[in-house]
């Protein structure tokens, strides 16, 4: 599935979700790849998928914050999920793209971009098929995991978006970066 097709499916899925509940307690998820791992995010919090463009770096931010991009006149921060999960920064490839998500923080909805290696598909996952996160053995902090779901080729990690992209926590990371910043040392 190309990015383009996924984009269209996302849009269609969002429209569909507005109208009627997906049958049998299932919900729609966007599946994407990060390194060799497959992840999924509930379609509800996804706004759109846009092409990758070099973000503008914001100084003194932790490495998980790549910078900001111009999204139709708005300035949107971009998070490198790979770094957030403790891996090396995502290598930029032909299919790298931004998944634009909406996160609630302090009474307002904020828009964030996530760098992912490629988007796979919009899939329906029944709640019954979701298993709790493993106590150990996961490559990422289990706090970030909502659950695991079996797919055709192995497991998909369903992300806890509120935790993974907690603005409060990301901002604190920013502060830590700023405090240890080079300003005074310059």
């Amino acid at each position: 599935m190309t990015n383009d097709m996924v984009v269209r499916t996302v849009a269609a899925a969002r429209r569909g979700n507005d109208n009627d509940d997906v049958s049998s307690g299932g919900a729609l998820y966007l599946a994407f790849l990060l390194g060799h791992e497959a992840y999924a995010i509930e379609i509800e919090c996804i706004r759109e998928i846009v092409e990758y463009s070099e973000p503008t770096a914001v100084p003194m931010m932790p490495p998980s914050v790549c910078g900001v991009i111009n999204l139709r006149g708005g300035v949107v921060p971009v998070i490198d999920l790979a770094v957030r999960f403790g891996a090396d920064p995502a290598a930029i490839g032909r299919r790298t793209c931004f998944v634009i998500v909406e996160v609630a923080h302090a009474g307002a909805v904020h828009v964030l971009g996530l760098v992912v290696d490629r988007v796979n598909a919009v899939t329906e996952i029944r709640s019954g098929d979701i298993e709790p996160p493993p106590a150990f053995g996961a490559r990422i902090n289990t706090d970030f995991i909502l659950g695991m779901a079996r797919s055709n080729d192995g497991f998909v990690i369903i992300l806890n978006v509120a935790r993974t992209l907690s603005m409060a926590e990301l901002a604190t990371l920013g502060k830590a970066g700023a405090d240890s910043g080079v300003l005074l040392a310059a």
Binding site: P59, M60, V75, P77, A171, G174, D179
Partner: peptide
Amino acid sequence: KPLGPLFEQVPCV
């Protein structure tokens, strides 16, 4: 354009 809560602590910007 404000940079939003994420960058509140960034000095000099």
